[in-house]
């Protein structure tokens, strides 16, 4: 392992150990910091798997309550975000089971959902904002065409940049299944975006 890689991996290990210790103590300041730090990523993940912003907000809050309650179960050996996403995912699945649904796909009913409002927060130019909004709406619309099991792996891999083994942990499925879903998801995304551009 090279010097900088070793340095960063040691730093990361220290960080996850600190988080694990803080969660054991139910340290409120640590939780405040984590909520701030991961708000964007967790919310985005929840929006993609539920397909609904209001529902994602509810699950966002419920996820952090669960982090507080089950914090002692996090051992600091894996990335905190992988554990966080697994908790969020399990909550969504529990809720879905309580609704007697069969798969993640049923979370998104296009007839019931309102289109998401996107905004480019990094660029204040109105024209750029409109263009960007169109692109993002196109991406969002295309993603909603993809079955949820593929949408989920695409988000975890290419937005959250989790490793394949970390994804297997979050999703509780074998590595080979993660890979095959990624390949199919990638193909579906390419096809959906092409279809979106053509329409």
């Amino acid at each position: 392992m090279s010097g900088p890689t070793l340095f960063f991996s040691t730093l990361m290990a220290d960080e996850t150990k600190t988080i694990a210790r803080g969660l054991q103590r139910r340290d409120p300041d640590l939780l405040d910091r984590l909520i701030e730090q991961y708000q964007y990523r967790l919310f985005r993940y929840l929006v993609y798997i539920t397909g609904n912003k209001a529902r994602a907000e509810d699950f966002f809050q419920e996820t952090w309550i669960r982090v507080l309650e089950r914090g002692h179960q996090y051992n600091g050996k894996s990335k905190f975000e992988a554990w966080l996403f697994a908790i969020a995912r399990n909550l969504v699945i529990d809720w879905q089971r309580s609704k007697k649904a069969q798969s993640l796909d049923t979370l998104t009913d296009p007839e019931q959902e309102h289109p998401l409002q996107f905004a480019d927060e990094n660029d204040p130019s109105p024209l750029r904002q409109v263009l960007s909004q169109e692109t993002e709406e196109n991406v969002q619309a295309s993603l909603q065409k993809i079955p949820a099991i593929y949408r989920e792996v695409l988000v975890l891999r290419f937005q959250e940049e989790l490793q394949i083994d970390e994804m297997a942990g979050v999703l509780s499925i074998p590595l080979s299944t993660v890979k095959s879903r990624l390949y199919r998801g990638l193909e579906a995304l390419r096809g959906a975006l092409q279809g979106g551009a053509a329409s």
């Binding site: 405040d32 964007y40 919310f43 409002q117 996107f118 993002e136 993603l143 290419f158 995304l189």
Partner: peptide, 28 residues
């Protein structure tokens, strides 16, 4: 396709983090 996926932004609702922090502290 991957570039579009990576750059798609979803803004977090205003005050969501604050509301969550408040609920978490109450529960704690």
């Amino acid at each position: 396709a991957l570039r579009l996926l990576r750059t798609a932004a979803i803004p977090v609702p205003a005050g969501l983090a604050g509301r969550t922090q408040f609920r978490v502290r109450l529960r704690a």
